[in-house]
Computed example of a mutant assay.
Amino acid sequence: MLEDGRPGDRPGRLLLVHAHPDDETLTTGVAIAHHVARGDEVHVLTCTLGEEGEVIPPALAHLEGDGPALAAHRRRELAAAMDALGVTHHLLGAPGAGDPPAFRDSGMAGSAAAGHPRAWAAVPLAEAAEAVGEVLAAVGPDVVVTYDAGGGYGHPDHVRTHEATRAAVAAAASPVPLYGTLTPLSWAEEDTGWLHAHVPSDAGWVLPGPDSAYAANVVPDEVVTHAVVDPGVVPRQARALRAHETQVVVGDGWYALSNHHVFRLAGREGYARLDPTTGRPLPEGAA
């Protein structure tokens, strides 16, 4: 459970800020489903519609490279995932349900999409933070959650989402705890062993090997000060992931992305409080 400073006479209110559709379920799906099951009020803010995403199903391959068409399809996927998770959803810069978002997917590092005038990673930080801050003020959360300073694996939109969220929290009228997603090294090692034992090795999936480098958000165990551990919510997380059919393949206790890399659905997520000024994880017990 993610700690907050809410009064004891009402449910908690969480705001989770993500870059693209599917990030919310891949990265924080356990925390979302856990807090919904507790009766907390959970809001998800998505900053772009993922126009630059790769498409997995052959029947939908025509969407790849067609930004508007893929955005429209992923918006429907996102709505289905939000319904499966039972949360309130916000699309950045789109106050109405049918409004287009204010910002666009920037693509991976070095992508030509980063040159688009509304690319999320290239928008001035002050403008990005102001947009996130408007949602923050409207929701009034007890807890805000986003990526660590490296954006999990370095995607420019994830990094910008962290920066904008951190700046919005720092500028908020009332202090609110900010959490970043991190994975303890011991969990990553356990998951690697589990995947090799449970995922077919002859089906084209890419399993982590003994010499594989972990993502940058895999850190020494002591850096991770908070955890949400609830295997019981994995079926709900899996249902939400299946809604993101262009981006994710869901197996029995695992999922794979468009690059065929496989990850475990372990029913646990690690977090740390972040310093909103620096973005660095705070030690356990820090105020």
Rank of each mutant, 00 (worst) to 15 (best):
L195P: 00
T278L: 08
L70H: 08
E77D: 05
P7N: 06
S212D: 15
G29S: 07
A266R: 15
A71S: 14
G29Q: 05
H35T: 07
V135F: 08
L78Q: 14
H89R: 09
Y214H: 14
A112C: 02
A227K: 07
G232C: 05
V55A: 06
E64I: 09
G110A: 06
P200Y: 07
M108K: 15
P208L: 09
D22M: 12
L178S: 04
V36M: 07
H260V: 10
D105M: 10
V249T: 15
L178Y: 13
P200E: 08
T25E: 01
G86L: 06
H34C: 00
L241D: 01
P184R: 06
V219C: 06
V176S: 06
D252T: 12
V228S: 09
L195G: 00
T277W: 00
V223A: 10
L257H: 11
Y255G: 11
H158D: 06
M82V: 04
G253A: 11
S111L: 08
W194P: 12
L15H: 04
V176G: 05
T48Y: 09
A138H: 05
A227Q: 13
L182Q: 01
I56K: 04
V228E: 09
L125S: 10
P100W: 14
C47T: 04
A256Y: 10
D191E: 14
H196C: 03
D211C: 08
R13F: 00
H20S: 10
A59D: 11
V36T: 00
Q237K: 15
L26V: 13
P231K: 07
L241K: 04
A197I: 07
H20E: 01
H226C: 00
V135W: 05
L45V: 02
A119Y: 13
G98W: 07
V30D: 00
G93D: 11
G107K: 09
P58M: 10
T277C: 10
G253P: 12
P200R: 12
R242L: 03
W194Q: 01
R74P: 10
D230Q: 06
A171H: 11
D40C: 08
L63N: 11
P21M: 05
A168V: 01
V36F: 06
G180V: 05
T246W: 05
P276R: 04
A138D: 08
W187L: 14
E127R: 15
S212I: 10
T48M: 07
V233Y: 15
P156Y: 11
Y255R: 15
A188T: 06
V234Q: 13
R280K: 04
D142R: 08
G29E: 02
H34T: 00
L178R: 11
C47S: 05
H73L: 07
V143Q: 03
A167R: 14
E284V: 05
R75A: 15
V219N: 05
W194D: 03
V36E: 03
D4E: 01
A94K: 13
T192P: 00
E245R: 15
P276W: 09
G96L: 15
W187T: 09
R242N: 02
T246M: 10
E77Q: 01
P220T: 02
V233T: 14
N259A: 10
H35V: 06
E134W: 11
E190C: 03
H20R: 05
V55N: 08
T278S: 12
I56M: 02
H35S: 11
A240R: 05
H244D: 00
A102F: 15
G29F: 10
L265G: 07
V169D: 01
